[in-house]
Write a protein that binds this DNA or RNA. Structure first.
Length: 630
RNA sequence: GGGGGCGUAGCUCAGUUGGUUAGAGUGACGGCCUGUCACGCCGUAGGUCGCGGGUUCGAGCCCCGUCGCUCCCGCCA
């Protein structure tokens, strides 16, 4: 018999009754009945109930066992009587009658229990990650992550992609984030950088003629953490393709993502391919964000023109971009609810406030008693002809802002924002178009949640396309790349090369072949058709304020390669951690990462980062200068 | 760098208007119990109330400072 096991703890069934077996695992639970001792033995595969009576030879040894001790138990598989079958356990029809018990390892009193499903403080969980990982939920999430990755890999290979590894110790790559630096021993004063993404390498792989590359790639960025953003390191499904248009990239990625999500959906619905494509400008208008959650039915409307009308006297919204956010069914909410929304806009969003109109249905006895203004408006906007008005009900707008508006304006708002009786309409106004859009977007998200409008059990994907190539940095008064500097501008080559600083409007209005993929409001990746033309690339950087010599020096490897025959190419890089988070249905990526760091970018279990010895520092030609403390 | 929340037993938490010896559940330890599967019952141990200072006759509770964790903004695909 094998020293440790003949079966796993999840394996035994009724068919095994009568056989002599050996199991090894952890004590999940111990139940001492005096005359009878139950030990639930757990391993990666499952749990098996083991039982022993006090007169058995092995009792003394088995009786010592406590939670999370590691035991090897040998004995006979017995069928449970009908009244003792546990139908909640796959192994619940049988149990092991212990004949031999060996303690392989003991456990101290546990800082966090493995058994049970309670929440524990993050730092304790991280310090004792190995215990937390034994717990069912985390154990399954981490196993799920592995299955998802292997599904992705299989699907990519099936589509003709080849996996290559790229260097970890490399040069700084300007993705926009802060680099992790590694000092060089052989080259005093010089540093490697950990890759923020294998961006330049994958483009070089295309220049090298490999056509379709992918990698489950580690990426390193020294930026502050969020619940959905690891500090330091994360993984991307990095991919790149040659001789492709944007649509070709979409057509390659969609079946992979759709397939993976379908495979693990467990009843949840997944957007069918092709996923909707939404232009960046449209997304900013309708959803107030470049990563819209399409499960949220609320669609924002631009109502700037209504408030600009001569007959509308609401000064606070004049000369501003005004966006209207419908709140379906919110008319029934108490005044305090609206005040809370307003308070949220003021405190959390730094907005002057969040005005609103509540739409109610007003009934009248005869068509004649519909106010003339409303009847006129209905006719003007084609709702109903005055002469044909049979409705005895019409929309009446109420609320703090309504009194500044004419009936025509209110009816126009209702039409533009597509609201009905019982709805409310919130307004976001700002002299800056972008800020009005962002507040509207935040309000849309909040209203969707508050009003319970976001359905569970759906994965709604979309592509956001046509991102602007450049944007204006108001603080530094300069033009900069709005996203990825390696994207190909959507602009005629010759005209692009001829651009001049005075063509600011043309530059800021220019789109790029740059796209994001979004699922349920979470940005999974961004990608682009790359700029493979050295002249266009130098010009693109020049527009963003980089001297040609600087660009030549910083991107020497790539620029040089592009001068020896570069295929048109493009790709993208969906985040693995976020994909698994979505599929696992968790809000924090520590729930799907085996050994995550805390928010301060520390590994509490391994004690990283830690101080280096003087010898190490000397070899690396490094001196530590600590910040001054007050 | 900024803002919100939290910090009481190994763990999860309660703790009234500032008032006697800071409680419960769970875990640990001991005892009882032959069918449990969150077993049950009895008992024991376990506390620098994050830390420092202040107000007060008296502080877990109020005030100031500080540290830690977490969530968010900045930053970052």
């Amino acid at each position: 018999m094998h020293a440790y096991r003949t079966h796993t703890c999840g394996e035994l069934r009724k068919r095994d009754v009568g056989s002599h077996v050996r199991l090894s695992g952890w004590v999940n639970r111990r139940r001492d009945h005096g005359g009878l001792l139950f030990i639930d033995l757990r391993d990666h595969y499952g749990i098996t109930q083991c039982v022993i009576e006090p007169d058995a030879a092995a009792f003394a040894e088995a009786d010592k066992a406590r939670s999370e001790w590691v035991l090897t138990l040998t004995g006979k598989v017995m069928a449970r009587s009908d009244d003792t079958i546990n139908s909640d356990m796959p192994t619940g029809e049988v149990e092991l009658r212990i004949k031999e018990a060996v303690v392989q390892s003991v456990a101290q009193e546990l800082p966090i229990p493995v058994f049970g499903d309670l929440d524990y403080p993050e730092d304790t969980r991280l310090k004792y990650r190995f215990l937390d990982l034994r717990r069912e939920r985390l154990h399954e999430n981490v196993a799920l992550r592995s299955k998802v990755i292997s599904s992705i890999r299989r699907r990519m290979i099936e589509q003709g992609f080849t996996e290559f590894q790229t260097p970890i110790l490399t040069a700084s790559s300007p993705e926009g984030a802060r680099d992790f630096l590694v000092p060089s021993r052989l080259h005093p004063g010089k540093f490697y950088a950990l890759p923020q993404a294998p961006q330049q390498f994958k483009q070089l792989i295309m220049v090298a003629g490999f056509d379709r590359y992918f990698q489950i790639a580690p990426c390193f960025r020294d930026e502050d953490a969020r619940a959905d953003r690891s500090p330091g390191e994360f993984y991307q499904l990095d991919l790149e393709m040659s001789f492709v248009t944007q649509d070709d990239v979409f057509a390659a990625v969609e079946p992979v993502l759709h397939g993976v999500f379908e495979e693990f959906a467990e009843g949840r619905s997944v957007s069918p391919a092709p996923f909707p494509r939404i232009a960046y400008d449209e997304a900013m208008l309708k959803y107030g964000v470049d990563k819209p959650d399409l499960r949220n039915p609320i669609v924002i409307a631009d109502v700037t023109d209504v408030f600009a009308r001569a007959d509308v006297a609401f000064k606070a919204f004049k000369e501003k971009t005004v966006r209207a956010i419908p709140a379906p069914g919110a008319a029934a909410q108490p005044r305090s609810w609206f005040d809370k929304m307003d308070g949220w806009a003021r405190s959390d969003m730094g907005a002057p406030g969040l005005g609103y109109i509540v739409f109610e249905e007003e009934a009248v006895n005869t068509p004649d008693s519909i106010p003339a203004a409303i009847a006129n408006a209905m006719e003007t906007h084609g709702v109903a002809k005055k002469s044909e008005l049979k409705h005895l009900r019409f929309l009446r707008g109420k609320g703090p802002i309504a009194k500044f508006l004419t009936e025509e304006a209110i009816q126009e708002l209702a039409r533009l924002a597509n609201v009905k009786a019982g709805d409310a309409l919130f307004f976001s106004a700002d002299a800056k178009k972008n800020r009005a859009a962002l507040l509207a977007g935040a309000a849309r998200t909040r209203l969707g949640r508050e009003l319970g409008l976001i359905p569970e059990g759906q994965f709604k994907f979309c592509w956001i396309v046509d991102f602007p190539m450049y944007e204006w940095n108001e603080d530094e008064k300069k033009i900069e790349f709005s996203h990825n500097p390696f994207s190909m501008p959507q602009y005629d080559r010759e005209k692009f090369l001829a651009l001049d600083a005075k063509d600011r409007d043309a530059i800021l209005g220019m789109k790029a072949y740059q796209y994001d993929i979004v699922c349920n409001g979470i940005e999974l990746s961004s990608g682009a058709i790359r700029n493979h033309d050295p002249d266009v690339m130098l010009k693109a950087f020049e527009i963003a304020g980089y001297a040609r010599e600087e660009t030549e020096r910083k991107f020497a490897g790539m620029l040089n390669a592009f001068r020896y025959g570069a295929p048109p190419h493009g790709g993208t890089a969906p985040g693995i951690d976020r994909i698994v988070m979505l599929i696992a249905g968790v809000e924090n990526l520590r729930e799907v990462t085996m050994f995550p760091m805390n928010q301060q970018a520390q590994d509490l279990m391994m004690n990283a980062p830690s101080e280096a010895s003087l010898k190490q520092l000397r070899e690396l030609h490094i001196r530590v200068v600590l910040p001054e403390t007050k």
